[in-house]
Amino acid sequence: MANLKTEQSVKVHTLPINKMTLWERLKKDRFLYVLLLPGIIYFALFKYLPMWGTLMAFKDYSPFLGFWASDWVGLEHFKNFFSNPDFFRLLRNTLILALYDIVFFFPAPIILSLLINEIRITIYKRSIQTFVYVPHFMSWVIIASISYVFLTTSGGVINEVVSFFTGKEISFLSSPEWFRPVIIGQVIWKETGWGTVIFLAALASVSPEQYEAAIVDGAGRFRRMWHVTLPALKSTIIILLILRLGNFLDQGFQQIYLMTNSLNREVADVFDTYVYFMGITQGAFSYSAAVGLFKAVVGIILIYGTNYFAKKIGEEGLF
């Protein structure tokens, strides 16, 4: 079969792609372009047509006057943003939280998927999957409220346990050094189960034969996980990581806002909460467009940078 296939495929591609004229190439793939068309219309209409909104960052946009009648202010909003005395504190807090997120949260769904994949009792496996994905549907308001109940120093369950063993209580909610662990802990609790969905789909493409072959080779459980399961996830992991980096500077505004208080604000203020408060007193449009543009530029650099790196090490990357 292998031989036949090669002969046939030579016939199908009578000319090497790069020798065809543009028109021939378009014509050959005309069906594919028809498939693309609705998507292209969508992106043109709902993504690119509104793109003028990003230019608000260079204007003093007033909704009532409209875009054209509002004054151009050039880089003023960017100057205000970068010269803000709090800029470096905001940048530091945002970056540290983003790094925590990548280091501690990003691998969590992968590990959980690997563990779930090792369960062989179908009903048990499916039940576990269902339970772990429930927190995704809880609102941050409820999660903040439950966190308070568990973590407060006035009779919180976790602090009761901590003080039973150490004799001391920990101010999880008020001390700056606990702010980031609490935030990341909440994210891990809420989103890990949800994050496994996509990896479990990727694992569906691993054929049983691959495991069988590994067993024939005498591979134990961990080696099978390492040599069969994990490689099957690799390209998905890399794609998700690159995409995540595109939103590197975005943080869950509502979560952080709810967990911030007077005693931990110095580490809790991030770009997203800052923009929200600026919006309250200043009218969000132009200023938040400027901050958004800044975050987007950072994001696009990270996307292309990691994509380049991924290709360097022989991975597929985004395109």
Partner: peptide, 12 residues
């Protein structure tokens, strides 16, 4: 006043 007032969930 309650010792944890600075962090108390205002919903509670």
């Amino acid at each position: 006043v309650n010792e944890d007032f600075a962090v108390m969930d205002s919903g509670k």
